[in-house]
């Protein structure tokens, strides 16, 4: 083959690969809507989203408690993991010596790679009994899911915040130090404001991770279909609802449609989060 032909073949192959990944995404969206959209019609859009009953035998499906559950675990975990994650990122970029970085850096990467079911297992055998015995039964609760998600979203927030803190030009920091600023004054007045949009993007991407997590949440949240009254109440999220019921749902039943519709709502949330995050991180 001539050089030119190789060039053209490679280009076509690469293009094909990228088209395939795009088609998979479109395909997933299509499949979700095909199977789930009828739930909006069968129940009525308003009744489905704001309904508080989920009754399989009567074929009545409302997901309001699930949406709330998902939003509760997401905000609950992010409120804690964002400040901790950002602090770790600041420590890693501006304070830690290279020896400490060499230890903590890989640990964070490893933490990001731990399969979610492992977090779920640890939560189930360690966290749930702890909550049951020290606070309030049954232990399977909103707070258990929040704690598991705090740990799971932290690596995302740390690594992405670190990236944007690191991309703050060195000249800014030098300017601040040269004017007699301490390290902390420099971080607070110069580095953080300059990295702000990237850090917000990181936090929102962490929220995307939290709202989309299924298995680990399913294993510790108790999966009770109700709006929780306290952090120690069992609850249910859009994701854990799907995990818990998809096996028993009959193909093409209204039940199945409702579960797929949960997936549609999740997809919309995640698109929203990722979109905002992408926009914020691009501003830098």
């Amino acid at each position: 083959m001539s050089k030119k032909n190789i060039e053209i073949t490679v280009r076509c192959l690469l293009f094909l690969c990228s088209i395939i990944s795009l088609m998979i995404l479109v395909g997933i969206g299509y499949f979700l809507f095909k199977n789930g959209f009828s739930a909006f019609i069968e129940n009525g859009l308003g009744n489905f989203i704001f309904g508080k009953t989920w009754n399989i035998s009567k074929n009545v499906y409302g997901v309001y408690p699930l949406i709330l559950g998902s939003l509760f675990v997401t905000t609950g975990s992010i409120i804690v993991s964002a400040p901790i994650g950002i602090s770790v990122a600041i420590f890693m970029t501006d304070i830690a010596t290279s020896d400490i970085k060499k230890i903590i850096g890989p640990c964070i990467e490893l933490m990001a790679g731990i399969p979610s079911i492992v977090f779920g297992l640890v939560g189930m055998i360690f966290l749930v009994p702890l909550i049951r015995e020290n606070f309030s039964p049954p232990g399977y609760s909103l707070i258990a899911a929040i704690i598991v998600l705090i740990v799971m979203t932290m690596p995302t927030i740390i690594t992405l915040s670190e990236d944007s803190l690191r991309s703050v030009p060195r000249q800014y920091k030098e300017a601040s130090y040269a004017l007699g600023a301490t390290k902390w004054q420099t971080v607070w007045n110069v580095t953080l404001p300059a990295a702000k949009s990237g850090i917000i993007g990181a936090v929102i991407l962490g929220m995307g991770r939290a709202i989309g997590e299924a298995m680990a949440v399913y294993m510790v949240i108790g999966n009770a279909f109700k709006i929780p009254n306290s952090l120690f109440d069992p609850s249910r999220t859009l994701t854990s609802n799907i995990v818990g019921q998809i096996e028993e749902a009959a193909l093409n039943s209204q039940h199945m449609h409702a579960l797929f519709a949960c997936g549609i709502i999740l997809l919309i949330f995640v698109f929203l989060f990722n979109g905002i995050s992408f926009k914020m991180r691009k501003v830098v």
Partner: peptide
């Protein structure tokens, strides 16, 4: 400094 480096 060499490069003008006003803060943002």
């Amino acid at each position: 400094f060499q490069q003008p480096n006003p803060l943002p």
